[in-house]
């Protein structure tokens, strides 16, 4: 079992390095723009006044929203969005392919001819997904730590939540994608569906903030659960959202476990 996890981890290592580099690189890029932007903040503020309030709400800049003149407000506005979207995409690709690739490449026939149960395969692969997402976010945390220290304003709890939030979101997307991949076994198809979900739910999040009529939608989109405004301004991820996320991961896991253990592998 240990050697299986090790081999699986090695197989995923290159993409982990690549995605971590992209996400951390973008965060650094965004934060490096902050000092230059800080000086011209008053001009930007005047410009923002011209926008309709609902538009500002979408970007978390409405009343009670992010204060872009602070480093965390700036990051919440500019960098966090990328982390959430790109990190979500990585998680969903990872979740989509980790099981389905074995079927796509028909290597599952090899794997299941060895003394390893389907549950052990699921367990091993889930451990690799979790390890990869944790590692991505640990590196991101260290990157943010250094960057905020350099800027001269570091708040531990906010920084931690700015990483825990995306991690939670990624775990939700990865587990949903894994569950989908039990039913749709062509890697490419699963990936399209899962990435569609990542983007679709993001737009759902935007719609839920645009008008109050659709406010109920916010419970359906995991982006709302890890909203930058509540992390930066209130240093919290709301309990109800945390609960829904954990429930989503749990249900996806249950579906994956139930159907993977009853699945016919035909080629």
């Amino acid at each position: 079992m240990r050697h299986f996890i090790k081999a699986e981890f090695k197989r995923q290592l290159n993409s982990l390095i690549l995605w971590t580099a992209i996400i951390c690189g973008l965060s650094i890029l965004m934060l490096s723009m902050y000092p230059a932007f800080k000086d011209s903040f008053s001009e930007l503020e005047a410009m923002l006044d011209a926008f309709p309030p609902s538009m500002l709400e979408v970007f978390g800049l409405g009343d009670g929203g992010l204060d872009m003149s602070t480093p965390y407000g700036w990051y919440g506005m500019e960098g966090y969005l990328f982390v959430v979207l790109i990190g979500g995409s990585y998680a969903s690709i990872l979740g989509s392919t980790i099981l389905s690739r074995e079927e796509d490449d028909q290597t599952i026939e090899f794997l299941l001819s060895k003394p390893i149960s389907r549950n052990q395969i699921l367990m091993g692969k889930s451990i690799v997904v979790m390890t990869n997402l944790f590692m991505l976010n640990i590196v991101l945390f260290l990157t943010l730590l250094v960057a905020f220290l350099l800027i001269g304003e570091f708040i531990f709890m906010t920084t931690l939540l700015l990483v825990v939030g995306p991690l939670l979101l990624q775990l939700v997307f990865a587990s949903i994608s894994m569950a989908i991949s039990v039913f749709v076994t062509k890697s490419r198809q699963v990936m399209s569906i899962s990435l569609g979900l990542v983007i679709g739910l993001f737009f759902l999040d935007i719609i839920s903030e645009l008008t109050d009529n659709f406010a109920f939608l916010k419970y359906l989109t995991p982006y709302e659960y890890v909203n930058a405004v509540s992390i930066v301004n209130h240093q919290t991820i709301e309990f109800v959202y945390l609960l829904i996320s954990i429930l989503m991961i749990f249900i996806s896991g249950l579906v994956t476990w139930f159907f993977y253990n009853r699945k016919d592998f035909t080629f």
Binding site: R11, D105, Q106, T107, E109, F110, L112, S113, K114, P115, I116, S117, F267
Partner: peptide
């Protein structure tokens, strides 16, 4: 799993990593 500790298998079409 117990069975596979004791069975060697050659498939008709070989798909490995």
């Amino acid at each position: 799993v117990e069975i596979k500790k004791n069975v060697g298998y050659v498939p008709s079409e070989v798909h490995y990593y």
